[in-house]
Design a protein around this nucleic acid. Structure first.
Length: 915
RNA sequence: GGGGCUGUGGCGGAACGGUAUACGCAGGUGACUUAAAAUCAUCGGCUGAAAAGCGUGUGGGUUCGAUUCCCACCAGCCCCACCA
């Protein structure tokens, strides 16, 4: 009886050995090309979920493959360990965030080892370690020193539940909710710390030095949101400059009023005594509105006249100045010229408040009239009512007017960005403290470098409100001023955790280094990251911040040492952190099908509370006299009327939904099934796949194999508990192939069969190599399965006794090593090879061996396949054409006429005859 | 409203402009079994008895040849959004 494949025994054994041998330790080796493979580090939430497996095991496979190809591969891992959940756990369960976080890290590190990843744990970095956040604080000080960090009173997004401010990137969705907890955010005026990301707006939208997915590049470009136009300065009647930004300076003559954001500094001065009460009331109501209400695009325009006027510099027109919340303080200058004839928002506002509409662009062959216009016109045309510019066409109007404005000193060309500075202050405990001290005499004073880190105190009292306990910790709060030595208070805000994760790829280089955030020697060898992988959700957050960080570091002079040590043929480390990026998709919950249990007209769906399901009604049968007819007309809490039998209809089914006939009598239905679409995994939906359980059942190799085979990596898809059987069978077959008793086979192996086997091996090498290269893990695994199928067949022939067969087995094991590292190592040993398979060379593809002797010549007539002929692979063009033309099944398409043209495609073994 | 992505069997998915549906799941049939599971063999795009025809969301185009390239449309998903 042959031994069975038992991953539960094999996997822990090898895991322990790899660990003990430090098989995955990566150190500087100038003799080999380096490859820095990086996968986004997890937040230590407590357990690895299937999404982590999906993100990490294919990245791991690729890193392993790069190593087998001769690269010196750095593949590190760590934890983004600061953040709110730890603090919430502390409040809810009375566990210190540190205790909670480090226990979780311990657990997750073990789980990652179970997964068979080749992470180099000697390089682990944990962002909540003082030896890590010392340098996060150090970077803050460098930014402060270089004018890239500043503190300012600002209207900011604030989550009332988390009791902290949020960056713009952390406010999500139509209802503008907190990224963490889902609570709608409110606006608050607070003094907050910012990083000057806007300084890098132009650079951040340039991706020319990196190979990143188009999708991410587009999202980042849109996020930076560049628009070209002009700044134009109006004068208020009190003589103040009132500058606006416009993308359409050519419509300046059509400005019939101006609008300021409620927060605009000139509002106060412009407001007349008569209007003062009304303006104050409006501003008050605007500030009390939620962000959702205020930014609702469908909302009717609101606003109020200030009573003040400004002078349009281009024609000295006196235009009224209004205040309205459709103008946002955060974009442009917080003030606009309103051109109702050519802007739909201004148009709506003008019509509502009965303001004049003045047409200044006339389209070809049509005459627009401001009084009768029903919507703003933003098409092409010629300028009118615009003084000397009348007759200028849209093609050149903007450029001409801009140049003229500049000449006249009224305005100038301007580029405006949507990007905002990065708000990094958080009013929470579990984060890196901002290293600033406030002194009554000296103001805000940076903590000297030699006093870093500013350590987070452990002995704190957590508030049920989430308010930062640092504000009440006397020992932390009270300090002395580094400048004058007088009494001073510490900043109690901590830094956004995105700050910690903006530079973690640098800390991996030398996690214990104490002279700088990273060792320049290591940096010069390993940087930049060659291949980064992670989810798309970070496109405008982490992936933006880390690019900003790299560029800011350059301007603070931090790359100098590294750049000096760098090999000249290596790309610069100072501009972009990650040269290539790949985004994996997401694993969804399993789509479920099942019977709905019918009892006395009551539908009970298995384990459903209130889920949207599809009832397939073509299998519905009624019993008795009742007819099911009509449509679904009504659904109350527990009642569903089915009228028209449709093939499929989506209804909501509660655990006791009643199916009634048209007369309201309960009916009995047979064979009613439900279908649940795949959805995001969540505890409340009960569709979460726990990797630990699946691994215990099938082994890590099977789970890895399944995740790589089942979907395109970039797409992801629903978990399929049935589908994993395919991988179970694959690995069992491989196991049998190597460990099973060879069937007794006498006689000489057929030479052609041996050749065919070797051909298959080399075709597989090409397929698997290409797959790994292009992140096509699914097709790579498919190739390995095909080779396995070929070997199973060869095993039943005398080929099994040839050296070619043994060689095929070892090639297959080598190719499996990146995907299923445990079984590959085990079978490598059992076939008498030296430890370890993971330090072997990747098999080399030989096109000569992969070439076929015979091919199938495909014969098409007018592009349709009409015949297939087996021919020698090296057939000449003339022979192939002649053979094709002489084929009987082809000649019947000729209808007596000779073919007009014959195409031969040698690379495809194909002839196309045109008749 | 703006931008982007995706549409191929019952399902996940293959296919440098050249044999559409590789590989796998589910399913059918048969073998083994008292039986089931597992395993093995075998069959599955659709219509058709067959011959043959039709097939990659829909409609056009380019081409000897289009799932692949171009245009328009439809559907679904994602990002941004009173952005001046």
């Amino acid at each position: 009886m042959a031994e069975k494949y038992t991953p539960q025994q094999i996997e822990p054994k090898w895991q322990a050995r790899w660990d003990a041998d430090k098989l995955y330790r990566a150190t500087i080796d100038p003799s080999r090309p380096k490859h820095y493979a990086l996968t986004m580090l997890p937040y230590p939430s407590g357990n690895l979920h299937i999404g982590h497996w999906y993100a990490m095991s294919p990245s791991d496979a690729r890193a392993r493959w790069m190593r087998m190809r001769g690269y010196n591969v750095l593949f590190p891992m760590g934890f983004d360990a600061f953040g709110l959940p730890a603090e919430n756990a502390a409040i809810q369960r009375n566990i210190h965030p540190k205790t909670w976080t480090y226990a979780n890290i311990e657990k997750m590190r073990t789980q990652m080892k179970t997964m068979g990843t080749m992470f180099d744990w000697d390089r682990e970095a944990i962002s909540s370690d003082p030896k890590y956040y010392k340098w996060t604080q150090w970077f803050f000080l460098k930014f402060y020193e270089n004018g890239l960090a500043y503190k300012q009173m600002a209207t900011v997004d604030f989550c009332p539940h988390c009791n902290t401010t949020l960056a713009r990137e952390q406010v999500w969705g139509d209802d503008r909710h907190c990224e963490r907890c889902g609570t709608p955010v409110i606006k608050k005026d607070l003094e907050q710390w910012f990083f000057r990301t806007t300084k890098y707006a132009e650079e951040l939208q340039d991706h020319s030095q990196i190979n990143w997915p188009e999708r991410v590049k587009t999202m980042q470009k849109n996020w930076v949101g560049q628009s070209e136009g002009a700044h134009v300065t109006f004068k208020t009647e009190q003589g103040d400059d009132l500058t606006i930004f416009t993308t359409r300076p050519d419509t300046l003559w059509g400005a019939t009023f101006m609008v300021l954001a409620p927060e605009h500094p000139l509002v106060e001065k412009l407001t007349s005594d008569v209007q003062r009460t009304a303006v104050a009331a409006y501003i008050d109501s605007a500030s009390r509105q939620t962000e959702i209400e205020r930014t609702d695009t469908n909302k009717e325009k609101t606003g109020v006249f200030t009573g003040g006027y400004a002078i349009n510099p281009v024609n000295n027109a006196r235009v009224p100045v209004w205040v309205a919340d459709y103008v946002l303080m955060g974009y442009g200058m917080g003030a606009i010229m309103a051109v109702p004839a050519h802007d739909e928002r201004d148009f709506a506002f003008a019509r509502k408040f009965d303001l004049p509409v003045r047409v200044v662009i006339q389209p070809e062959g049509e005459v627009l009239d401001g009084d009768t216009l029903t919507e703003a016109y933003h098409g092409d045309g010629k300028m009118v009512n615009s003084g000397a510019f009348d007759g200028t066409h849209t093609d050149e109007s903007v450029a001409k007017v801009t140049a003229w404005l500049d000449e006249q000193g009224m305005g100038h060309y301007a580029v405006n960005y949507r990007l905002r500075d990065w708000l990094i202050s958080r009013q929470r405990y579990w984060g890196a403290p901002i290293p600033i001290v406030y002194c009554a005499n000296c103001g805000a004073v940076p903590v000297p470098y030699d006093q870093l880190p500013v350590v987070l105190p452990d002995d704190v009292q957590f508030m049920p409100t989430g308010e930062s306990p640092l504000k009440f910790h006397a020992g932390f709060l009270n300090t002395t001023c580094p400048t004058c030595g007088g009494p001073a208070k510490r900043e109690t805000d901590t830094m956004d955790t995105f700050m910690c994760s903006s530079w973690y790829h640098l800390r991996y280089l030398s996690p214990d280094y104490d002279e700088a955030p990273f060792d320049p020697q290591e940096g010069a060898y390993w940087l930049p990251v060659d291949q980064y992988t992670g989810g798309i959700e970070h496109a405008t957050m982490h992936l933006m911040y880390t690019r900003f960080f790299t560029k800011a570091l350059r301007d603070c002079g931090i790359w100098k040492d590294t750049e000096a040590l760098r090999q000249p043929d290596q790309p610069s480390v100072a501009n972009e952190p990650m040269l290539a990026l790949f985004n994996q998709g997401m694993i969804l919950g399993e789509a479920r099908e099942g019977d709905i249990v019918i009892a006395s007209g009551t539908v009970e769906a298995d384990r459903l509370n209130a889920a949207s399901i599809r009832i397939v009604t073509d299998v519905v049968e009624t019993t008795g006299a009742n007819e099911v007819s009509g449509e679904i007309t009504k659904r109350t809490e527990n009642l569903l009327n089915i009228n028209t039998p449709q093939r499929e209809m989506t209804v909501e089914v509660y655990d006791t939904t009643k199916i009634m006939d048209v007369n309201g009598n309960a009916i009995t239905l047979a064979d009613l099934r439900y279908h649940l679409d795949a959805e995001k995994m969540s505890k409340s939906k009960g569709n979460v796949v726990a990797p630990d359980q699946v691994v215990a059942k099938y082994g890590a190799d099977t789970v890895r194999g399944y995740l790589m085979f089942a979907f395109r990596w970039e797409s992801g898809g629903p978990w399929d508990s049935q589908g994993i059987q395919g991988i179970v069978r694959w690995l069992n077959d491989v196991w049998t192939l190597v460990t099973g008793d060879k069937p007794a086979m006498s006689g000489e192996a057929d030479e052609a069969a041996v050749k065919a086997l070797r051909r298959k091996v080399h075709q597989t090498i090409q397929k698997v190599t290409d797959g790994l290269d292009s992140f096509g893990f699914n097709t790579a695994v498919a190739g390995l399965m095909e080779l396995k199928n070929t070997l199973l067949a060869a095993r039943k022939t005398p080929v099994v006794n040839t050296p070619a067969y043994a060689e095929a087995i070892s090639s297959m094991l080598l190719m499996m090593a990146p995907f299923t590292p445990f079984i590959a190592e085990e079978l490598w040993e059992r076939t008498g090879h030296p430890y370890s398979i993971h330090t072997q060379q990747w098999p080399v593809y030989d096109p000569e061996i992969a070439k076929a002797d015979e091919i199938t010549l495909v014969v098409q007539v007018n592009g349709k396949v009409r015949d297939r002929i087996t021919v020698p692979a090296d057939i000449s063009e003339a022979d192939a054409k002649a053979l094709a033309l002489s084929s009987e099944s082809i000649q019947r398409y000729f209808n007596g006429e000779p073919p007009s043209k014959v195409f031969y495609v040698p690379t495809r073994g194909m002839v196309n005859i045109v008749v």
